[in-house]
Amino acid sequence: HNLTITQGKLFFHYNPKLCLSEIHKMEEVSGTKGRQERNDIALKTNGDQASCENELLKFSYIRTSFDKILLRWEPYWPPDFRDLLGFMLFYKEAPYQNVTEFDGQDACGSNSWTVVDIDPPLRSNDPKSQNHPGWLMRGLKPWTQYAIFVKTLVTFSDERRTYGAKSDIIYVQTDATNPSVPLDPISVSNSSSQIILKWKPPSDPNGNITHYLVFWERQAEDSELFELDYCLKGLKLPSRTWSPPFESEDSQKHNQSEYEDSAGECCSCPKTDSQILKELEESSFRKTFEDYLHNVVFVPRKTSSGTGAEDPRPSRKRRSLGDVGNVTVAVPTVAAFPNTSSTSVPTSPEEHRPFEKVVNKESLVISGLRHFTGYRIELQACNQDTPEERCSVAAYVSARTMPEAKADDIVGPVTHEIFENNVVHLMWQEPKEPNGLIVLYEVSYRRYGDEELHLCVSRKHFALERGCRLRGLSPGNYSVRIRATSLAGNGSWTEPTYFYVTDYLDVPSNIA
């Protein structure tokens, strides 16, 4: 807008934040220059609390790290170098490059900038070799853009010569660093050979998330399962459950009422301010606690030095998902009996873990797994792929695949051998790939016309006998059925096997 004052003059007093240069501009645009008398524009009460600059400061050096910015700028000295009290560095987070010096300023003089007072450097006698002032900004957020400017702080001049310097606002972004852990990993099994893994992005990506790394490792069953005799009275049979499938998407929606109208769909109840505040506090606490764990609990591995020492970490090797089922080394339970199943799973520490690289999504279907087997899954978020990966501390989750139908069934015939004193040795093959492992066998036998009897055969007993022995049988026709019990439950009964026990007292003698 054009402003013209045809008559009258300007009068400025007691404006401590208004620089004289701005008042002189007002004289020019209003056409009143030359009308004012000496005392109409006070030299001592206008701009006496402001830094009124008329020179431009330029930054000469900028260096960044993930949490620091090192700045240096060209030296500046007023005509009387004693008038320079120091520099004021202003900075704040700036997602967009549209910041002005006066953003967030209120009537009390406060604003949204963080201000650092910096002492002037030592003055050199040689004007050509003056030290460049600077400042190291610490405690910054990774991968965050900051708006920065600097200006001088000078003393009051009796001659009211307006001098000083100020830089333009520059924008500097800190470097990326390792992201925080992925949030809320959930693993479920939808079949006997697959596990579905879902997660949420890290709360602090500290860069642009480029991919996720998912490692999985087959877990050995508890050692007590191999040692305890679950045929003993009072000892509860062990059981394991597989990871249940995901709930429906509708039930997972946030901010939804727990109660549904019987007449149909209901609208979600909005969260109160107290609920939102509580969630923010919980989120802040979780982030602080995660940072504490990362800094205190997890110790970084030592990389190899120039002395030739090897990095103890196993090298990563990509495998196809079809090879995942046989990740671990199978060892027989008892070496003397080769027909026992290889369900003991000690994992070799030198073995390469299978892994998958996930790009542009937060889910993965891990296939080719062994049925009813526990897996430990390790999830890392990465925001750099080359020249070397920059990934987060791992988040861990466990899951067990679903049982395989008929995996616990005894394959092959049940054979028998009759000894003296009416002892019958029953023999059968253990299931080759049971659900988890076989903890015991149930032997059901009966003599024709009598009630059915049951015998429990422990895992250890089966390994020693290759089956079991029935003792003290009365003469007669017998039928026997056997079924295995694994961590997933009972298998199917075998087809009945028949044998006849004679009275050993009636056996004919070869003595003449």
Rank of each mutant, 00 (worst) to 15 (best):
V480P: 01
Y259M: 05
T303M: 10
L237M: 09
T288C: 09
H371S: 13
Y448C: 11
G467W: 02
L453V: 08
V501H: 03
T502M: 15
G476W: 00
N339K: 10
V397N: 14
L379G: 00
E282Q: 15
I482E: 00
L232K: 05
V439T: 10
E362P: 06
E389F: 11
L232H: 11
L235M: 10
T494V: 02
S315H: 09
T386L: 15
G322Y: 07
Y259D: 07
Y448A: 11
L228T: 07
G472E: 09
E378S: 07
D222I: 12
D250A: 08
R390A: 04
T415K: 15
Q275R: 06
W242T: 06
E433Q: 07
P434E: 02
K460P: 11
G449S: 13
D408G: 02
A394C: 10
D250S: 11
N422S: 14
F419K: 05
T485A: 09
P475M: 08
N326W: 02
R400A: 06
A463T: 13
E221L: 09
R459C: 15
A395H: 08
L293C: 07
S262L: 09
V297R: 11
F298M: 14
N435Y: 00
A381T: 12
I418Q: 08
G234M: 11
E417P: 03
T401N: 01
T303N: 14
L455R: 08
D222M: 07
E356S: 08
A335I: 14
I377G: 05
R316L: 13
E247P: 10
S251M: 15
E247R: 13
G325E: 06
A399E: 10
P270T: 06
A407S: 11
V501W: 02
P475E: 05
T340L: 09
E433R: 14
R316M: 06
G325M: 10
E430F: 09
P508S: 04
V345F: 04
G489R: 09
D229M: 07
T373L: 05
A463S: 09
V331S: 12
T386V: 04
P245R: 11
E290A: 14
P300E: 07
D250L: 14
D311Y: 15
S444L: 05
E356Q: 13
T485E: 14
P300Y: 03
L237Y: 03
V359A: 08
A330V: 11
F337I: 09
R319W: 06
H294E: 03
E258L: 14
L364G: 03
E224I: 05
K236P: 12
F499I: 15
R466D: 08
T343K: 12
F462C: 02
P332Y: 05
K278S: 15
L228K: 09
T241E: 02
T288I: 15
D250W: 06
R483L: 03
F226I: 06
E221G: 15
E417M: 04
Y504N: 05
S367P: 12
D385N: 06
D506N: 15
